[in-house]
Amino acid sequence: MLALSLQIVLNGLTTGVVYVLMALGFTLIFGIMRVVNFAHGELYMAGAFAVTVLSGGLSWPHLPAILASVVLVGLLGAALQRLLFSRVIGNEFNCMILALAVSICLQSLALIVFGPDEIGAPRPVTGVVHLGPAVIPADRLFVGAVAIVLLVAFYLFLNKTRLGLMMRAVAQDPEMAALHGVRPNLIHTAAFAVGSMLAGAAGALMAPIYTVFPYMGELPMMKAFIVVVLGGLGSLPGAVIGGLMLGIVESAFATMLGSTVAALVAFAVVVAAIAVRPEGLMGRRA
């Protein structure tokens, strides 16, 4: 029983950290710009394709390939914000429609360039690791470790750098931040870039574990959305706690009752959570 619980928790945590990466970017973009980024899954997909091309096609070593993919997706996000989202910011409905349009365009571009087939990225890490009575695939452990490093880096960025502090100020009170000389345009672009980098990192990390194809972003997008609603839209701690919780709960339900029940329970909880407490577990009342 203890071994089983440990296994469930470990499985849950290794998927949970990826949910956290996705959810943090999603919630950051919402918190700062009020954009519900329906294209977040496509940024994940872009990260996965980037790492597949770099490490597979161009045979780069794995870690530099991941880093380059993250940077590329960050640039993509910054460009999207500069060229498109900056024109409709302030209108929640138009932002949502624009994000949908971007999502459709990115998916279809991937379809045109790479085709509809599922392709595999090179697998740099193989084998399993024994942790006490539990067994984890080594590649999952690698993903978890890199994700934790990224999360720590993100935390330090938000709390120790000038740009990160400005971002938090804008999220808390855009008018007050503007009064203190924080330029919203710069912060919006930076937030979109950082949010995209987190999604791109999740995609780049998961590419060797799952297969890579144009529609791969839909599922992680859905998970990010569940996490963010549970944790509170715009709440960063909520995204971390929600992501890890969803990972563990899913892993427990999937082990005991099957993944369909797990998915249905997740939707039911989301509906109940929004209906009862729209601001989420950790959210502030608007």
């Binding site: 519900v36 959305f225 839209l233 249905l264 509906v271 929004i274 209906a275 729209p278």
Partner: peptide, 25 residues
């Protein structure tokens, strides 16, 4: 009466979850 108490983005997300739940059934 439960769903329409929330507005804007929250209503969008709520009905998103409802729709996915129905399709899953």
């Amino acid at each position: 009466p439960i769903f329409l108490r929330v507005k804007g983005v929250y209503f969008v997300l709520l009905t998103f979850a409802l729709g996915e739940g129905i399709v899953l059934v």
